[in-house]
């Protein structure tokens, strides 16, 4: 695949993170390259959240190295990471329901227009850009003044993704974007991920749903009990193998047998 010709944008080497006596991450290695979708799989409590928070600058790693575009990097705050081009779309904290799509889209980076001595938000430009970006992701908004609360869960994720893309993200971290969605909305979000990947952005897709991962992933890394169990290319691994690795092996196989392979 073409995307693997590139060097990684972000490379996390042997990351460790301790919270007091608790070892949340114990040697995690992970990288993402431009134009690929790298799925990070793991069961609840595997350390996925801690890991993405480390990657997005919320936590500082206790040990290990973060390389950004080939250089060692240490982020002091999410703002630093964001400015470097690492955008994170959190599962539930992405949007403010009471505010309009435009206000959400530009939140923190509102475009201003000078009128005399005052700086006002350039609403005309902001509205037009929002509508255009949303259209690119395949959503036709009724109006940019529409409150985000009136959008469906999938549409909200899409606004957040479109926002990250518009502001020049090089890496987009998606934290369980499909976990709370219905079938059709999941499909919408997955197709959005596909579009984003094609623009050359590296996508980190965190999920515990193997089928969602298989639908769009180029590479798959499984996290279990704070460690990476290895990374596989698309086509080198079957969904069943992924599922087993996530669950941590034997007992899952037994359980799966008794449930008739429906898990």
């Amino acid at each position: 695949m073409a995307s693997f010709d590139h060097n990684p944008i972000v490379e996390m080497r042997n990351i460790e993170k301790h919270f007091g006596p608790v070892i949340a991450l114990n040697g995690v290695s992970f990288d993402v390259r431009p134009g690929e979708c790298h799925c990070l799989l793991g069961d609840n409590g595997a350390g996925k959240s801690t890991f993405i928070k480390t990657m997005s600058g919320v936590h500082k790693p206790t040990g290990g190295e973060i390389m950004f575009e080939g250089r060692p990097m240490s982020f002091d705050s999410p703002r630093d990471a964001m400015e470097a081009g690492i955008a994170t779309v959190y599962q539930d904290l992405a949007m403010i329901p009471l505010m309009s799509v435009t206000r959400n889209f530009w939140m923190g980076r509102e475009p201003v227009k000078r009128v005399g001595p005052f700086n006002f938000i350039d609403f005309k430009m902001a509205n037009e850009t929002t509508m255009a970006e949303m259209r690119r992701m395949g959503i036709n908004l009724r109006s940019p003044d529409q409150a985000v609360g009136t959008l469906s869960g999938g549409e909200r994720q899409t606004v957040a993704i479109a926002r990250a893309v518009h502001f020049g993200a090089k890496v987009l971290i998606l934290d369980e974007p499909t976990s709370a969605l219905g079938v059709r909305q999941t499909a919408n979000v997955l197709s959005t991920i596909d579009k984003v990947r094609k623009t050359g952005i590296g996508v980190v897709f965190i999920t515990h749903n193997v089928r969602h991962a298989m639908a769009v992933g180029d590479r798959f890394t499984v996290l279990n009990r704070g460690k990476t169990l290895g990374t596989a290319q698309r086509g080198q691994i079957t969904p069943e193998e992924l599922q087993d690795m996530m669950a941590g092996g034997q007992e899952m196989v037994e359980l799966e047998g008794s449930l008739g392979g429906t898990v």
Binding site: P78, R79, M82, T88, Y90, L93, A94, M95, I96, P97, L98, M99, R103, W106, M107, G108, R109, E110, V112, F118, N119, F120, I121
Partner: peptide, 24 residues
Amino acid sequence: TRTRFGNWVFAAGGDAQAARYVGV
């Protein structure tokens, strides 16, 4: 209603955590 700061006021009250994530 017209300035960046105003947008931040809405954001801070709407969902402080979400606002922090985007740098407000």
